[in-house]
């Protein structure tokens, strides 16, 4: 499996060999960070999800984020779950708008305040 390292602008092409879903070797990296990234990315890729959702009583939408990264394969489901969230203004930055999104154990929180 070939992936691009994202740690710095060099963008090393990493060749990753997997056996039974486990990384057995990483080549093409020029520093340690590349190997760490490849081991995470090939076995369990994770992403922060940010989005905007409407708030009743406000013309401005609310920006939100997952507090920590969630599995990449759950991004779509996370967006679907967020589409069903009903919120009323005011909302304070940092408030949990959706707890334990898609069973990840990760909360989605507001990243700004909407008066």
């Amino acid at each position: 499996m070939e992936i691009t390292c994202i740690n710095c602008p060099v963008g090393c092409r990493l060749n990753v060999t997997l056996e039974n879903g486990q990384v057995v070797s990483v080549t093409g990296n020029t520093c340690k960070r590349g190997e760490v990234y490849a081991r995470q990315e090939c076995v369990d890729p994770q992403r922060m999800v940010t989005a905007v959702i409407p708030v009743r009583g406000s013309a401005m939408p609310l920006s939100v984020k997952t507090r920590t990264p969630i599995p990449k394969k759950l991004i779509k489901d996370c967006m679907k779950a967020l589409a069903d969230v009903q919120l009323d203004a005011p909302v304070e930055a940092g408030r949990v708008v959706l707890a334990n999104v898609c069973g990840t154990g990760v909360d989605v929180i507001a990243t700004k305040s909407v008066p």
Binding site: T4, C5, I6, C8, P9, R47, I75
Partner: peptide, 12 residues
């Protein structure tokens, strides 16, 4: 653009 953005905004 940053490699991070090519991977996480386009490739994903």
């Amino acid at each position: 653009g940053l490699n991070r953005n090519i991977v996480q905004c386009l490739n994903d």
